[in-house]
Amino acid sequence: MTEPTPAPAPGSAPFPEPVEGASTSSAAGINSASFPEPDPSFPEPVEGASTSSAAEIGFTAARKAAMSLPRTDRVRTGAPLMDRLQPLLGALVRRVWKLQEHHAERVPTDGPVILAVNHVGILDGPMVVAITPHGQAMAKRELWGNAVLARVLDALGQIPIDRWNPDPGCLRQCIALLRAGRRLVIFPESHRGAGDFARFRRGAAYLALTTGAPVVPVALIGTAIGGTGLRSIPRPGMPVHVVYGLPVAVQAQEWPRTAGEVADLTERLRSVCAQHVQQAQQELGLELH
């Protein structure tokens, strides 16, 4: 027996859930993907059970099914090679630059975590992943255009994302790794810029609502010294700062998650992250770059 599709709240629409092969002409990235309607099912009533008991069993099963959408049980998770190399890579980064981590105790040590990092330089992604145990990051799909680099990134468990078109496969991978209790490094600004979180994509909010993972703001200071590309990388021995903020607790929402819920949480996260960047600069007496 198939469960009736729950009706969205008045004035709201279900936020799209991932499906392989989705496409759109919009260039809004994961913000505009379209997905089909999942179909969780009730279990058959247990023989001898009362009508109310069977209804309770069905409701519980349906709610559990709604919380598990989108399904990720067939998605491979983990990055065993990166997990083995991470201590060495972290030590290398700390040796090359005068890396200082501030308030690292604020990052939860158990369960999934989303690290929402500002993006100012080309060094940001590799450095944060190198110093984050059990961490994986989303990186622009263009990097996979180089066959050798693509193999390295895949081996290290990094996740390609199409920044300009819906990428449900990337979302499923991110949800799966968070459900496995890992840490996801995400750059909500989408590409390098001022690093002040004036722009904030909705992916972090959607992933948090889907998994219940807390979101930790992270401010990077000193990872870019001017110029573009490789010329922006700070010279060896220069100070680089990573400032962690207080985690933002998020309650997991069952399907359907509405676009309004995602938008509201996105603005809340943007405000918290932007304020954290300002506080980090004031605390250290430094500019972002």
Rank of each mutant, 00 (worst) to 15 (best):
T72K: 07
M138S: 12
R71N: 04
T223N: 14
A49R: 11
G260W: 10
P247G: 03
G226Y: 09
A252W: 08
V250Y: 01
N146S: 04
F15Y: 14
L115Y: 00
F35R: 13
A7Q: 06
V242I: 15
R231W: 05
S190G: 14
S26C: 11
V107D: 05
G90W: 01
S53T: 15
L69N: 03
F15H: 14
L286Y: 01
L284I: 10
P14C: 05
L92T: 15
T258K: 11
P188G: 05
P126W: 00
G157F: 02
V218A: 00
M1E: 09
D196G: 03
D154L: 15
L89V: 10
G145R: 13
S34E: 09
E101S: 15
P247C: 04
G90D: 06
Q279S: 11
Q173T: 14
G222P: 06
V216L: 00
R199H: 07
L178V: 08
P133Q: 07
V240Y: 00
R141W: 11
L69Y: 06
P87S: 10
R270N: 08
C170I: 15
P87H: 08
C273E: 00
E20Y: 08
I122S: 02
I186M: 01
T109A: 15
A205W: 01
V93S: 07
P112L: 03
D196M: 07
I186T: 02
P133R: 08
M238P: 03
T109L: 07
I186Q: 00
R182F: 05
P8H: 04
W255R: 14
L284Q: 05
A65L: 05
A33Q: 13
T258V: 04
R270M: 02
M67F: 15
R163E: 05
V218N: 00
S12Q: 15
P126S: 10
N118V: 01
S25W: 10
P217K: 01
S34A: 08
T266K: 12
Q279R: 12
L99N: 09
R71Q: 15
P166R: 04
A61L: 05
A263D: 12
Q278H: 13
R151Q: 14
T2Q: 07
G222F: 00
A155E: 02
A198Y: 10
L153W: 02
T211L: 06
T210G: 04
V250T: 15
L156H: 09
A130P: 08
P70Y: 11
D167M: 10
V262G: 13
S190I: 15
F59A: 12
T24K: 11
A259I: 10
D83H: 11
V128T: 11
E3P: 05
A150M: 12
A7C: 10
V120K: 12
